[in-house]
């Protein structure tokens, strides 16, 4: 038996299982018609994904809500196969002019589950302004093995609110539910939940933006807990006379939330110490108050804050993602 025959023989076993489970290859006619983008190759049948990509053109004019393409993906293997197929979407104007996608991702690789228990997976996307057509393309990514699909390449409006609980979302592949819980966690500055959701995202797909978000969150966590643990390196300067210290009113460098907080703090502290030297600081309330407090803490400088407790709640509490104002004020 030649090498090629052996590989073919290996490939046949999972394929046979797929056939026994009712999956059928697309007919030549179906593949031909799908090449002109008008036949949904997966609609109302258990289909085996052809070797070459198949695509479907759908009208999406006027859709403002998010839409999704949902599929069940099956492998004849006994274990889950990561990234077995991908679904991607492109947008076009009425006459075929390409339209740039909206910010939400427009391509996703799907897992293939063993026969009998495939999970519904969905690519969610927003229809960009000016789009008339959406071309959804399905592509197989495993060699020498067949993959089965059930579902439709036709985009559907997403109407129902996210119903998955956090616990269920954390074991699901539903990006929309995960995004929802991540946004909720971020609103509450709940870093623990944020970490759990981002870890799930990272398991599903190690995209650069997920890894960056996760790294930034962990850095926030480490920075705040680290500063809280430090032994009174920079104590409040209750004894400072008002007006005697350096007035730290405006940040030297803006904080965008897209860089690690620890790095930004170090960078800002260098600038602050360069200007203020070692004199005590006065940190009046105002824009970026919490950030200025953190900088003073991490710079190891003595500082004086506003006296009245009433002033604190008025400070901008959303200027540092994932951190609550009371955490900053209590360190």
């Amino acid at each position: 038996m030649s090498d090629a025959e052996r590989i073919d023989a290996l490939a046949e076993m999972p394929t046979r299982k797929l056939l026994q489970a009712g999956f059928r290859p697309l007919s030549r006619f179906a593949i031909m018609v799908s090449s002109i983008l008008v036949l949904d190759p997966a609609r109302r049948r258990k289909a085996i994904v052809p070797r070459r990509p198949v695509a479907l053109l759908s009208m999406v004019k006027g859709i403002s809500k998010p839409v999704s393409v949902s599929l069940r993906v099956t492998t004849g293997r006994h274990k889950v196969e990561r990234g077995a197929i991908s679904v991607s979407v492109e947008f076009f104007g009425l006459l075929g002019r390409p339209v740039a996608p909206a910010c939400r991702g427009n391509r996703m690789r799907f897992f293939a589950d063993p026969i009998g228990n495939p999970e519904i997976q969905a690519l969610y996307f927003d229809v960009p302004k000016g789009a008339f057509w959406a071309k959804v393309t399905l592509c197989r990514h495993v060699k020498n093995r067949r993959i089965g699909i059930e579902g439709s390449l036709r985009p559907r409006r997403v109407v129902s609110p996210v119903s998955l609980s956090l616990e269920d979302a954390l074991v699901s592949r539903d990006r929309r539910a995960l995004e929802y819980h991540l946004a909720e966690a971020r609103l509450r500055a709940d870093r623990q939940t944020g970490r759990q959701v981002l870890a799930r995202f990272a398991f599903l797909e190690r995209t650069p933006d997920i890894l960056l978000s996760y790294r930034l969150l962990e850095d926030c966590d480490r920075t705040i807990t680290g500063l809280a643990r430090e032994k009174n390196i920079a104590s409040d300067c209750a004894a400072c006379d008002a007006g005697s210290g350096y007035q730290y009113t405006v940040l030297f460098n803006p904080y965008s939330g897209t860089i690690a907080l620890s790095k930004w703090l170090k960078s800002e502290a260098i600038s602050l110490k360069h200007v203020a030297g070692t004199v005590a600081l006065e940190i009046p309330s105002g824009t970026d108050f919490l950030l200025r407090v953190l900088v003073a803490r991490s710079a190891g400088l003595q500082f004086r804050m506003p006296d009245t407790e009433q002033e604190v709640p008025a400070f901008d509490t959303v200027d540092i993602p994932w951190i609550k104002s009371d955490e900053v004020l209590s360190i």
Binding site: K79, V80, R82, A199, R200, A202, F203, R206, E218
Partner: peptide, 17 residues
Amino acid sequence: DPDYMEEIYGLIADMPS
């Protein structure tokens, strides 16, 4: 091997470092 890599992905999902 893909099965081995799945274990690696699972392990490092919670390790941004």
